[in-house]
Simulated assay, not measured.
Amino acid sequence: MIIDCHCHAGEGDGFSGPWDSDAGLERYLARARQAGIARTVLLAAFHSDYAQANRSVARIVAADPGRFYGFAFVHAQRDRGRVRAMVRVAVEEYGFVGIKLHRHDARISREVCETARFFRLPVLYDVTGEVAAAELLASQFPDVNFILPHLGSFADDWSAQLALIDHLARHRNIYADSAGVRRFDLLEMAVRRAGAHKLLFGSDGPWLHPGVELAKIGMLGLAPDDEALVLGQNLLRLIGH
């Protein structure tokens, strides 16, 4: 079963770009079906109120729970003091299985990490190139699993992505996803140095084509068992399924 661990859904309430205005799934789902992607992790678009945005994602998940997983999006600073309450609602009422946050909003906080530990959830944290954060996360929260998408930098920062590979290899609780990674040699290096058990397939849909992103995993030429880890088993293990 192929699982896309990284897809946005619902509407943001901004208008600076697609990432905070609209993340409709119609085209994504058609492309995902064609590519053979069976399940998808949904994350809200950027929003000024993530409690509201998570409710919108929850409605999409509830409409097809066999197709979607949900991660609770939080803002480490704006939601300070209420992160645990927000995540509790997401877990207990919506059935969400992870936490998402983005450095574009704010750096990750101890409160977020402690909440993830309390609920035993993985954290998908876009560090936007600040991959040194992995050292702090790994050393202070070794019992929490962190997925750093885009191999550490959607901006295609070669030095950041290269540095993240070292963290993947050294720290048992640091993972990466493949969404939007253009430098194929770095994906190859990540698997070679850290192992297939440390990389997850993600597309960053609906804006990137899931079939194109999936093709990169196929081109890695992994053994069938290793490919199965990247394409879904790693995600299922991290969410406890």
Rank of each mutant, 00 (worst) to 15 (best):
G66V: 06
G66T: 04
R67M: 06
R67Q: 12
F68A: 03
F68E: 05
Y69M: 04
Y69K: 05
G70K: 03
A72P: 11
A72G: 02
A72N: 02
A72T: 00
F73M: 08
F73W: 07
F73T: 12
F73S: 14
F73A: 14
V74M: 02
V74A: 07
V74E: 04
H75D: 13
A76R: 00
A76Q: 01
Q77E: 11
Q77I: 09
R78L: 10
R78Q: 13
R78G: 14
D79F: 01
R80T: 01
G81L: 08
R82S: 12
R82I: 06
V83N: 10
V83R: 01
R84A: 07
A85K: 07
M86H: 06
V87K: 09
R88K: 13
R88V: 04
R88P: 11
R88Q: 15
V89L: 11
A90D: 07
A90Y: 04
V91W: 05
V91M: 06
E92R: 09
E92L: 06
E93C: 15
Y94R: 03
G95D: 15
G95N: 11
F96P: 11
F96T: 02
V97I: 14
G98A: 08
G98S: 12
I99G: 03
I99S: 04
I99E: 09
I99Y: 05
K100F: 07
L101Q: 09
L101T: 10
H102S: 05
H102F: 08
H102R: 05
R103N: 14
R103L: 05
R103Q: 13
R103A: 12
R103W: 14
H104Q: 14
D105G: 08
D105K: 03
D105F: 15
D105P: 14
D105V: 02
R107P: 15
R107Y: 15
R107E: 15
R107G: 13
R107C: 14
R107Q: 14
R107S: 14
I108D: 11
S109F: 01
S109R: 00
R110P: 10
R110M: 05
R110G: 03
E111N: 03
E111A: 00
E111G: 01
V112F: 12
V112T: 09
V112Y: 09
C113W: 11
C113K: 03
E114W: 02
E114I: 00
E114F: 00
T115A: 08
T115M: 06
T115K: 06
A116D: 09
R117E: 12
F119Y: 08
R120V: 02
L121D: 07
L121W: 09
L121H: 12
P122N: 00
P122W: 10
P122R: 05
V123R: 00
V123C: 08
V123M: 03
V123L: 01
L124V: 04
L124H: 08
L124E: 08
Y125W: 09
D126T: 03
V127S: 11
